[in-house]
């Protein structure tokens, strides 16, 4: 189900990780992911996992939550894993089955690539689980603010993201309701060939679009009634400020990156 996707779901709390500046969290998440992509052996991944585990503990998140976030990706994971396994050119055969030769390099590539994906998702999940979507967009908006000089619509993009995040759960719920209503009138969404199934989607999409437009219209009016006039002269409830906490987190992440780098250099 779509509801199982952890990505983009905020897990409310008051941990040090929750209290960090979203800009710093964004930067450090990117740094962490870059770090993980530089890793090239299992010890490195173990270190990356250890670091992630530490952060998750500090954040007070159930680790199972992160694992669940990976679940929707299982097909992509298996697919890329097999793709790498079969097609990555390698030179050291370890297993031969008829026309197919499994090479050491392909296996390594497949495993590492899958691990990277998993870490990418889990790392981002820590960010989204500990940062409310509002803070996240705030952070993004402010990180992108220098770009407004080149007419980059930073505020508008952030506002769009906020609204999307606010309305996605509503529209999912609505889809479910409309689908049920059509099923109650004998519609069949499960059987038939591709064309028939695509046709069965029309009764679903029309009301969904109508509703999305109505909501957009209502929301625009509500925003106007509350004096919305774009990003200029706007203040924010939370002025973002870097604190000692952020410095500490940055230092910790820097240490992690150093260790990873050193490990790759001298042990790997």
């Amino acid at each position: 189900m779509l509801k199982d996707i952890t990505l983009g779901q905020y897990f409310p709390g008051d941990s040090p990780v929750h209290r960090m500046d979203p800009r710093m969290k964004l930067i450090l998440t990117i740094a962490y992911i870059v770090g993980v992509f530089l890793v090239s052996d299992l010890l490195g991944y173990a270190l990356a996992l250890a670091f992630l585990y530490l952060v998750v503990r500090v954040a007070g998140l159930p680790f199972g939550y992160l694992v669940r976030g990976v679940k929707p990706l299982r097909f992509i994971l298996v697919f890329t894993f097999l793709l790498n396994l079969f097609f990555f050119p390698g030179t050291t055969p370890i297993l031969s089955l008829g026309f197919f030769t499994l090479t050491r390099e392909a296996l390594q590539k497949a495993v590492f690539f899958a691990l990277r994906l998993v870490f990418l998702v889990m790392g981002t999940s820590v960010l989204t689980l500990t940062t409310s979507p509002m803070q996240l967009t705030d952070g993004l908006e402010r990180l992108m603010r220098p770009l407004t000089r080149f007419h980059f619509p930073a505020h508008e993009l952030a506002m769009m993201m906020t609204i999307a995040l606010r309305f996605i759960p509503l529209l999912l719920e609505e889809t479910d309701k409309i689908q049920k209503a059509q099923m109650a009138r004998g519609a069949d969404f499960e059987s038939g060939n591709l064309l028939m199934r695509a046709k069965a989607m029309v009764p679903l999409l029309v009301p969904l679009f109508v509703s999305a437009f109505r909501r957009a219209n209502d929301l625009a009016m509500a925003m106007e009634a509350r004096c919305y006039r774009g990003g200029e002269h706007r203040t924010r409830l939370r002025e973002l400020k870097y604190t000692r906490l952020d410095a500490l987190a940055a230092a910790a992440t820097a240490c992690f990156l150093l260790v990873i780098f050193a490990e790759g250099r001298f042990l790997g």
Binding site: K177, I178, R185, G186, P203, V206, P207, V210
Partner: peptide, 18 residues
């Protein structure tokens, strides 16, 4: 079953599409 038991949801007009 569904031709025996008809169900009208809340705000059913939101489900019209034709």
């Amino acid at each position: 079953i569904r031709r025996k038991v008809g169900l009208v949801f809340q705000y059913p007009e939101n489900q019209l599409f034709e």
